[in-house]
Every structure is written in structure tokens, then in C-alpha cells.
Simulated scan of single mutants.
Amino acid sequence: MNISLKKTIKLLALLILFVTITGCTTKPVFSNADQSLSNQHQGTAPKTETINETLPAKVTNIPSNPAVEYEPAWPDRAVKSSRGHLVNSCVPDELRDQATTLTTSDGVYLSALVLGSGNKGVLLAHEQGYSICSFLDMGTELADNGYLVIIPEYRNHGASQKIELNEHIELDAEVALNELKRMGAKRVFLAGASCGGTTAIVAGVRQELPIEGLIILSSPAQCSNLDAIPSVKKIKAPSLFVFSPGDYGGSIEKHVRQLYQESGATDKELIVDESGYHGTDMYHRGQDGNVLKTRLIDFVKKEFK
């Protein structure tokens, strides 16, 4: 082997070593507890949460709630913002000062993000076992399009409070909707994944602001102590229901179809996503995920003007 060839091989080896050391990978985030979707979905395997890179939303509306000291559900994921609020470490540094602390009607402390500003409020409610960042990419895009967005992190999740029993999760959606109203929202749009969607329906009809639309991703009709059927009948606003065949052995399809059929909306659509994923993973991990996410955001912008 001549000297020139040896030098070339050596340079290639150094280049490969440099790329290996400096290259970045995205690690999946796992929940620290096995959360069931509903009373009929027990013993499911822990989920893997895929978090897409997110461009920071404009910081225009800093929440004013005081910071509170409490034990977070996932202490290894909880950090403090410069204002002293606990927030999930998955939230980019640029957005951590948008974190606030909410107190539910049963006395539980929640970490939440408030993005954007204005009087058009949007609730994005993540699924059980996942985190505040499940909807972060969608939330920042909506905030940049003129919406006041709140993403609560549910009890026993992430930087929200650790409590003994994971009950009354509808109160987490309720306090988030109350915060939107306190910050100036005059109308609301409800969106949620899995049990987050169930809570959005139940809490949404309890509050006083007009509902402008509903997005449901893989949500069971019944979750824990909640039954969303009586509530979804009362929602007349345009509604979008999305599921993937085979999700939870096909039981999620039955639930979402039931919500769709019982919906009080005349303008409603049922979307079958072929990815095989559940909740926000349909657009985070599905082959055509970006198409689905764009469709969801366009639906909000079309129906909520």
C-alpha cells in the first residue's frame, strides 16, 4: 500500500470518529409509570414518547401565577424556570419562562405552559403516560398564528405534583380552561390525545366559554371515572375524530367511533390514520405524520377565526 493511500484511509478514519463524537441523537422519553387508558385497558406496556424539535413561540404573555414548592411526579425531568416554576426538562430553554403553576379545585399543583396571546384560547391535553411536550410543536405553531394556547401537564406526570391516586383528571383540564379565561380568552377550542381528549370533552362542557371546535386523537369514551358520551352530545362545534386501526387491539377504534356517532356536531369528520400509532404518536411517528399534523392545525385555523 503506498503512502498516499495510507494517508487517505487515516483521514477517513479520523472523519468518521469526529462525526461519531459530535453527532446528535434524539432519545425517546419514557413515562415513569404504566398508565391505563381506561378501566378496560389495564396492564398496558410503558409508552415511548417521541418529541419533535420545536421552534420557539413568541413570548408575548408571561403568566403571573406565583411559583409553588411541591414534589414533582418525575423529579428527574423537573427543572425550575427563572421565575421559580417547575417545568419539564423537555421544554426548550427559550420557552421555560412561559411555564406557570396551576392549582386544581381539589388542591393539586400542575405545571403548565401558556403560549401566545389574544382572546382565542386553545387547550391541548396530553395522554396519560406522556408529557407536556406531546403537544409542544403543535402548541407553538398555533401560538405563532395568533392563539392563546395552554398545555397542562397532568397530575402524576412530569413536573406536576405527585399524589397518591391518579383520579379526577378532568379537574386538570378544568383548571387549564379557567386559566385561559383568566388570561383573556373569550372562546375556546378543545383538543386532546387519549384520556386527555376525554377530559377535554368533559371539562369543556362544564365551563362557560363558547366552544369553537374539538379535536380528538385516539380518545376512549370512558376513562377512569369519566364518561364523555353525555358531554360530547352537547358539543355542537365542528369536530374532528382520529384513530388508527388496531390501536389497543381495535378497542380504541370502537371508542372513537362511538364518540363520533354520539357527537352533537353536524359538521364532524372521522379520520382513519393508517400509522398504527396511538394519540400524538400518530403525527409524531407515523409515516405521514406531518400531513396529519398540518391537517389538525389547518382545522383549528379554519374553524376558529
Rank of each mutant, 00 (worst) to 15 (best):
T198A: 03
D172E: 13
E208W: 02
G286C: 09
Y277Q: 10
G246P: 06
V202I: 12
V242T: 08
R187E: 15
N166K: 13
A228D: 02
G204L: 07
S263V: 04
E164A: 01
K233T: 11
D172S: 14
L217V: 01
S218P: 00
R187N: 15
S263R: 03
I169R: 14
R257W: 03
L240K: 10
P230Y: 01
L165S: 14
L177R: 15
I201S: 01
V291H: 06
C223T: 13
G276N: 03
A228Y: 01
T198V: 05
S275F: 02
G249I: 08
D288V: 02
R285D: 12
G286W: 00
G204C: 05
H255C: 01
Q207R: 13
P230Q: 08
V205D: 11
V256S: 02
A200F: 01
C223S: 15
D172V: 14
A176D: 14
A221G: 07
S224V: 06
D267M: 05
I271A: 07
G249E: 03
K234M: 10
Y283Q: 11
Q287A: 14
G158Q: 09
Y248A: 10
G197R: 05
A200R: 01
A221H: 00
G196T: 09
N290P: 11
Q207T: 13
G286Q: 05
H284Q: 13
T199D: 07
E167M: 14
K268D: 06
L270S: 07
A191P: 04
I216V: 12
I163K: 12
E167T: 15
I271D: 08
Q161C: 14
E167D: 14
P220H: 00
A185M: 11
Q222E: 08
V256W: 00
V256T: 09
G213W: 01
G213V: 04
L177F: 14
D267L: 02
L177E: 14
A203V: 03
E174N: 15
L165G: 06
V232Q: 07
L217F: 00
R187K: 15
S244C: 05
A185I: 12
A200M: 01
S263M: 02
E212K: 13
